[in-house]
Write a protein that binds this DNA or RNA. Structure first.
Lengths: 190, 190
DNA sequence: CTTCAAATGTGATGTATGTCACACGGCTAC
DNA sequence: GTAGCCGTGTGACATACATCACATTTGAAG
């Protein structure tokens, strides 16, 4: 499927846009291909865009002072990714985004999103819905973090996103779960 | 200050509404007083409302199978609270909300929020902004959870919300930080 | 096919935090 | 005033997980 079709189908699940409106909406996006391992947002950068994944898999992550990595999100097709804190508040990135596999994305500037939200009520409705979904999911993840042990969280993750098991190495899964790769390895061996 | 004024000032920071628009918006809210300890949303209930705090302090929390409590949020004046997952998806509450102190709140049905968002573009803009802020804050908290130890998280919390220190007992702070009250107690004693 | 780096497994040991048990002080209700 | 509960402190012990070190496997590049 075309990138345009993928985005159109994604939006149509929530907001009703006429073809003209969608064409106008879509005209603000650009498309780009990235290779496995390539960086999209690097900590310290200015952040101008948010990214809609067409194909492949991204990760957004934080690196602490000890160079330890914590993964905030894996982004599969039809997921959105950016450093939203930096993007909305126009501050330097503290989050990184890069490619776990080769990937194609559509991207949109912060200013254009705000402009489109202002011009098209339905678009603002869509973005409200999207943020809401992210908010609720993050709250659930936070609760699971406080409440459940690593094994449970690992099994929940794979139940929710079985495709990750094949695409994402275990050290990254560990960085998502917030444990060391050794501990994750020992869950089923030893 | 009047409840109406407090809400108006709060909205005006983000969205521009005419006086007529705000009056119409406000007409969908009702006001209610609660006493210290009183429940507002109980796990298993149907959730019809979200709540805007005028005075006092609420908490939203999850109780697990071992009856251990985890606090998602303290809600001080001008904060919003509900079980948003249940509210948006029309499912039974899994989260509880109750009063840490006597409290006054304004409340709004889910249906009225959606209606108002639909009727007034600026209102939808406001709610998108609000959700966005919650999303970013929750992401930060999740990262802090993975990255920082209890002592650091405790001090960050008190730096961000010094008023909590006087209002909220330490066992609740511990439930927010995701540690046992004993561990929190031992941070500065022993 | 060979080489090298990345991913993964695993043992030994340290540490932060949980759990259980009990003590104590301060409020509140009668 | 006193009985009882809530919030808090603290000791002893258990446990999940981190860390460090090294071995093994796998997969990609030449």
């Amino acid at each position: 499927m075309e990138a345009k079709e993928i985005l159109k189908t994604h939006i149509a699940k929530i907001a009703v846009l006429t073809d003209e409106q969608f064409d106008y909406f879509f005209s603000h996006f650009k498309k780009k291909s990235f290779q496995k391992g390539q960086a999209i947002i690097t900590s310290g950068d200015q952040v101008d865009y948010e990214y809609f994944v067409i194909s492949g898999c991204l990760k957004s992550f934080y690196i602490n002072d000890d160079l330890k990595m914590f993964i905030l999100q894996f982004a599969m097709p039809t997921w959105w990714a950016s450093d939203y804190n930096a993007l909305y508040n126009q501050t330097k990135a503290t989050i990184n985004v890069d490619c776990i596999t080769d990937a194609e994305v559509l991207y949109l500037t912060n200013a254009d999103r705000e402009k489109l939200c202002n011009e098209l009520h339905n678009v603002e409705n869509f973005f409200r819905w999207r943020t809401n979904k992210g908010y609720i999911a993050t709250q659930k993840r936070l609760l699971s973090f406080m409440n459940n042990n690593v094994k449970y969280r690992y099994e929940e993750l794979l139940k929710l996103y079985p495709e990750l098991y094949n695409i994402v190495p275990k050290n990254l899964i560990a960085a998502y779960l917030g444990v060391s790769r050794e501990t994750l390895s020992r869950l089923y061996n030893t």
